[in-house]
Computed example of a mutant assay.
Amino acid sequence: MIFAALRRRGPRALLLLALALAAGAVAPGLPSPAAAQSTQGGAPPYEGDLLRLSEILGALHYLRPLCGAGEATRWRDEMQGLVDIEAPSGDRRGQLIGAFNNGYDSYKQVYRSCTPSAELASQRYLETGAKLSRDIAARYGSN
Rank of each mutant, 00 (worst) to 15 (best):
residue 107 Y to F: 14
residue 78 E to H: 13
residue 117 S to Y: 10
residue 93 R to L: 03
residue 116 P to G: 04
residue 99 A to M: 12
residue 113 S to I: 09
residue 100 F to L: 03
residue 113 S to Y: 09
residue 100 F to A: 08
residue 111 Y to N: 01
residue 111 Y to K: 07
residue 96 L to K: 11
residue 90 G to A: 10
residue 104 Y to V: 01
residue 106 S to W: 10
residue 94 G to H: 05
residue 83 V to M: 15
residue 108 K to F: 09
residue 105 D to S: 08
residue 77 D to A: 08
residue 90 G to Q: 12
residue 100 F to R: 05
residue 73 T to S: 13
residue 104 Y to N: 08
residue 80 Q to M: 09
residue 104 Y to H: 08
residue 114 C to A: 06
residue 114 C to V: 04
residue 98 G to P: 02
residue 74 R to F: 11
residue 92 R to Y: 11
residue 74 R to I: 02
residue 115 T to Y: 07
residue 113 S to K: 10
residue 86 E to D: 04
residue 104 Y to W: 15
residue 84 D to W: 14
residue 102 N to A: 06
residue 87 A to F: 13
residue 93 R to W: 06
residue 114 C to D: 00
residue 73 T to F: 12
residue 105 D to T: 12
residue 114 C to H: 06
residue 96 L to T: 06
residue 113 S to V: 10
residue 83 V to E: 04
residue 87 A to I: 09
residue 87 A to H: 12
residue 98 G to H: 11
residue 106 S to K: 15
residue 108 K to I: 04
residue 106 S to T: 07
residue 87 A to R: 14
residue 118 A to V: 07
residue 108 K to P: 00
residue 90 G to K: 11
residue 113 S to R: 15
residue 75 W to S: 00
residue 89 S to F: 14
residue 97 I to N: 07
residue 104 Y to K: 09
residue 93 R to E: 01
residue 96 L to N: 05
residue 92 R to V: 04
residue 111 Y to S: 01
residue 113 S to F: 11
residue 96 L to H: 11
residue 103 G to I: 03
residue 116 P to W: 07
residue 104 Y to S: 03
residue 97 I to Q: 13
residue 110 V to R: 15
residue 94 G to A: 07
residue 83 V to W: 12
residue 78 E to N: 12
residue 109 Q to E: 02
residue 105 D to N: 14
residue 110 V to C: 00
residue 73 T to M: 07
residue 101 N to I: 13
residue 96 L to M: 10
residue 114 C to P: 00
residue 112 R to K: 04
residue 112 R to M: 02
residue 79 M to W: 11
residue 109 Q to M: 07
residue 102 N to G: 04
residue 93 R to A: 05
residue 77 D to K: 15
residue 103 G to N: 03
residue 96 L to D: 00
residue 97 I to P: 04
residue 97 I to L: 09
residue 110 V to L: 14
residue 112 R to G: 01
residue 106 S to Y: 07
residue 85 I to L: 15
residue 108 K to T: 02
residue 110 V to E: 01
residue 85 I to W: 14
residue 91 D to A: 13
residue 109 Q to R: 15
residue 100 F to P: 03
residue 115 T to K: 13
residue 97 I to T: 09
residue 104 Y to P: 01
residue 105 D to M: 11
residue 117 S to F: 07
residue 91 D to R: 15
residue 110 V to G: 00
residue 115 T to N: 04
residue 80 Q to D: 07
residue 75 W to R: 14
residue 74 R to M: 06
residue 116 P to M: 05
